[in-house]
């Protein structure tokens, strides 16, 4: 028991490395917020573009979306960070992490939005078009408000999963929580910094997970 306390909850180590963990927290939050904003926005735009049903454009969207849903985020980041510089594209670790997870979130979000759009009854389109509303007006005023509501629960869950993956940014040298904790662990030869990282993640994400449970019951599929 003593051993666990010493190695996982050493107060001296905690006090010493708290500032750097907190630095890491801000980087993680910064990165996560950027990813959520750009990922959801891009996913939404792609789904709307897909609604126009222009064949070659849709094939392209489906291809890109499939690739970023199929590849593990860590593989994407490593390819972006370690392979792209060989063909002259160099990005900082932060940009790589942001871009990779934005593309991943956008891909999942596009698929979710698109499924939402498809699940709106055909009669809604017909009723709106019969009153003279154009395609875009129907999409904006009739279909999307219903589709977005349907997509809120799966989108919330997916967003949490992907923002959690910001921990992978430690692989491309972003100074986020896990990087800070690993460095501190190496310096102090003690696991306590990792415990601190774990607690930091819990503080950030536990409320979101609880929120997602509430969202699920509030916006669930039944109308």
């Amino acid at each position: 028991m003593n051993r666990i306390a010493e190695n996982f909850f050493d107060l001296a180590v905690m006090a010493k490395y708290l500032p750097s963990i907190i630095d890491g927290v801000w980087v993680t939050i910064h990165l996560a917020v950027l990813i959520v904003l750009s990922g959801l926005a891009l996913g939404f735009v792609l789904a709307v573009v897909r609604a126009f049903q222009i064949r070659p454009v849709n094939w392209l969207i489906v291809l890109v979306v499939d690739v970023f849903r199929a590849l593990p985020p860590i593989v994407i980041m490593i390819v972006f960070y370690f392979a792209l510089p060989f063909v002259g594209i160099s990005m900082s670790g932060f940009v790589v992490a942001w871009l990779s997870l934005t593309l991943v979130l956008a891909s999942f979000a596009e698929e979710i939005f698109w499924t939402g759009i498809l699940s709106v009854d055909r009669g809604q389109w017909e009723a709106a078009r019969s009153t003279g509303l154009g395609f875009l007006q129907t999409l904006r005023d009739v279909v999307l408000p219903q589709a977005v509501r349907l997509t809120i629960p799966p989108l919330t869950n997916r967003t949490i999963v992907i923002t959690k993956s910001t921990a992978i940014a430690s692989v491309v040298a972003v100074q986020e929580i896990l990087t800070q904790a690993s460095a501190a662990q190496a310096f102090s030869a003690n696991t306590t910094p990792l415990t601190m990282a774990a607690i930091a993640y819990l503080i950030i994400f536990f409320p979101l997970v609880v929120l997602s449970r509430w969202v699920e019951s509030r916006f669930g599929w039944k109308r």
């Binding site: 009669g123 017909e126 009723a127 078009r129 009153t131 219903q146």
Partner: peptide
């Protein structure tokens, strides 16, 4: 179309 009204079997009211 705005001069041609249409009423559907399943109403198709906008639920939102």
């Amino acid at each position: 179309r705005r001069h041609i009204g249409m009423v559907f079997q399943s109403f198709n009211l906008y639920p939102h």
